[in-house]
């Protein structure tokens, strides 16, 4: 009997949590109008959320591109189709790995930082102090971070893809002997700006929205103790990752049929 009761409680708590998250989202979105007038707050956050994630994104992009080229070559060469290496690398990155991997990296680095920062501000009563000073913490603290995360993601994803393509070139052309001209031309023949690149950007916008939402919400909703903040940070990373992968499946099936 107790097991069923705890299961019920768990489900109800979950639904209540979703409700809080939804209310939080609507409050944050209306706060975005406020933030557009105080754009300097957004710029500050663009730096800590976007610029500081750049390094890990670029390095990872490079390595992913290089691995793609290696693995792609090994498979294609069996069919005598190694001339298509550029296309394989570019399509994989543009459609899937660029948006998805960037989102995962972003969740791990920027998302967890956002959660920890906001959670800590809650735990040290800084958010409460702001409320008592008649400043809405959602307008002042949450909304700028929300906007910054949403804007940074597609930029980071695109840079990831580009660096990955270059990495693929380094390995494919430099190491494995694929012709440079063929590498680029096979890409240009097959990668469509609208279908592939635009869809990739749309994906990363959706991921940016979801990951940032989860990150700021978990921070804002965290228990104001050190254990609470650490659990919230974990929830951000795990939740964002699962959401990204799940959404990727949905988006891919909608976009590429």
């Amino acid at each position: 009997m107790n097991a069923i009761r705890s299961l019920g409680a768990w489900v109800i708590n979950g639904i209540v949590g979703w409700g809080r998250a939804g209310l939080f989202l609507s409050h944050s979105l209306t706060a975005i109008f406020f933030v557009l007038r105080r754009f300097r707050l957004v710029i500050q956050q663009l730096f800590s959320v976007g610029v500081l994630t750049l390094v890990i994104v670029l390095v990872s992009g490079l390595f992913v591109g290089m691995v793609l080229a290696l693995q792609g070559y090994n498979t294609l060469v069996d069919f005598g189709a190694e001339s298509q290496l550029g296309l394989v690398v570019a399509l994989t990155l543009t459609r899937e790995l660029g948006p998805v991997l960037t989102a995962l990296l972003f969740a791990g680095r920027a998302g967890s930082a956002l959660t920890a920062e906001i959670g800590l501000m809650k735990a040290t009563e800084q958010l409460a102090a702001m409320e008592m000073m008649a400043v809405d913490p959602i307008e002042r603290v949450v909304a700028p971070r929300f906007l910054a995360g949403f804007l940074s993601m597609p930029l980071l994803a695109v840079m990831f893809t580009l660096v990955g393509v270059v990495g693929g070139h380094l390995v494919g052309v430099g190491l494995l002997g694929v012709d440079s001209g063929v590498y680029w031309s096979s890409m240009q023949e097959g990668v469509d700006a609208r279908e592939d690149i635009l869809n990739g950007v749309i994906k990363s916008l959706v991921f940016g929205f979801v990951v940032t939402w989860i990150a700021v919400f978990e921070g804002y909703d965290a228990m104001p103790t050190s254990e609470g903040v650490s659990r919230a940070t974990t929830r951000t990373v795990v939740g964002s990752s699962l959401a990204v992968l799940g959404l990727d499946f949905v988006l891919t099936s909608l976009m590429f049929e």
Binding site: E125, A129, E131, M132, M133
Partner: peptide, 17 residues
């Protein structure tokens, strides 16, 4: 509007770090 006319000192000062 009311809160602007109130000041509050928190237990751990709650300064914006």
């Amino acid at each position: 509007a009311l809160r602007k006319r109130m000041g509050m000192l928190f237990q751990r000062s709650a300064l914006l770090t």
